[in-house]
Every structure is written in C-alpha cells, then in structure tokens.
Write a protein that binds this DNA or RNA. Structure first.
Length: 166
DNA sequence: ATAAAGGCCACCC
DNA sequence: GGGTGGCCTTTAT
C-alpha cells in the first residue's frame, strides 16, 4: 500500500456491488477511492492509511447513490486518483481498455512509452486506489496467468466474468 | 545517497 | 515445470 497526497476532508460510505460490499471515498460526485475490502477487513483503516491527513465523514446514503450510478446505470463518475506522475499515466492507460477485454502488463508498459518498465507498471497498478473504475482487473500476465490483485484473485475473477456477461 | 521490494518478463535448464 | 537475472519506480533506511 502506498500513501497518497493529503486532502482535508472526504466523505465515505459502504454500498453493495456485484462483487460484494464496496467502500467509496468521495467528495460531491468526485470519486477518490473505491475499495473492495475482504469481509474481515476494515476499509476505513485502509482509507486513513492512503489519506493520512484526511478527516472522513460517513455518508452511506450518498455512497449508495454513487454505487447505483456506477454498477446499475453504467455511468462513470469523475475520478480523482491521487498519485505520482508515473502512476497517473499508468492509470490513464488502464482506462483505455475496452470493457470485456483484457490486456497484459507488458502492453500497458508499451502504451505509456516505457516498454521496459513492466515491473514498475505492475506495482503502479497495485497502488491504484479506484478499483473497477480504473480497470486493474483487466490486466493479466503475458503468459496468460491471472497475475495478482490487491483485493484477492477471487474478486478479480468475479469482475471479469461479470463484464463478460454484459 | 543507497538499498530493498514489488500484481513482471525473457531466457535458460 | 522451476530458477535467474534484469528491468523501473517507490519507499524505507
């Protein structure tokens, strides 16, 4: 995990998703983080680690609305992923991947013009704060393996299958 | 300034 | 299949 830039205040809340419970950190309609914590994991702890200087206000009602917007209406809210320049470019490249398709870590590295930075790309993807909306789950290993996933490989599989069905 | 650790890859055996 | 060495960024000494 990695610490991100500071923001004074954010709202957060929990909601249902096709992949289980999720936790959203947001400000208005801007999304700062989207987590899929394991059942025994406290998402707020994770949020506080990523945004150490931020005060969090619980707002489940708004989180629920955002979740519906994303998972049911298929709309994409504004994303504000905080990170280094390198990470930003990787995350941007991820968002170019069409729904229902997959790519590889090596191709992402090519796409951002750093074909040799594959390894670094992997780490950057792992640091992605907005799972699903920044589709880190569509990235597989070159040899066809699943690779890793921050929230567990089960979750990665579920996301891919769910997208395929659509 | 240096070291260590990654959601990797290519190349060998 | 498995091990090894190189790759590049970020974080921790």
């Amino acid at each position: 995990m990695k610490q991100l830039k500071t923001i004074s205040e954010l709202s957060y809340g929990f909601a249902n998703s096709p992949f289980g419970i999720c936790c959203i950190a947001f400000s208005g309609t801007e999304i700062y983080a989207l987590l899929f914590p394991a059942p025994n994991e406290d998402a707020l702890v994770d949020l506080k680690f990523r945004f150490p200087k931020t005060n969090f206000k619980l707002d489940n009602a708004s989180a629920e609305k955002l979740a519906i917007q994303v998972f049911e209406n298929n709309e994409k809210p504004e994303l504000t992923p905080l990170g280094t320049d390198f990470q930003q470019s990787v995350w941007k490249a991820l968002q170019q991947i069409p729904v229902g398709t997959t790519t590889t870590y090596a191709k992402i590295a090519d796409a951002i013009g750093r074909p040799k930075a594959v390894r670094a790309v992997g780490t950057a993807i792992g640091a992605n704060p907005i799972a699903y909306l920044i589709p880190c789950h569509r990235v597989l290993r070159t040899d066809g393996g699943l690779g890793g996933f921050r929230w567990g490989l089960e979750c990665k599989k579920k996301m891919l299958e769910w997208e395929k069905k659509k």
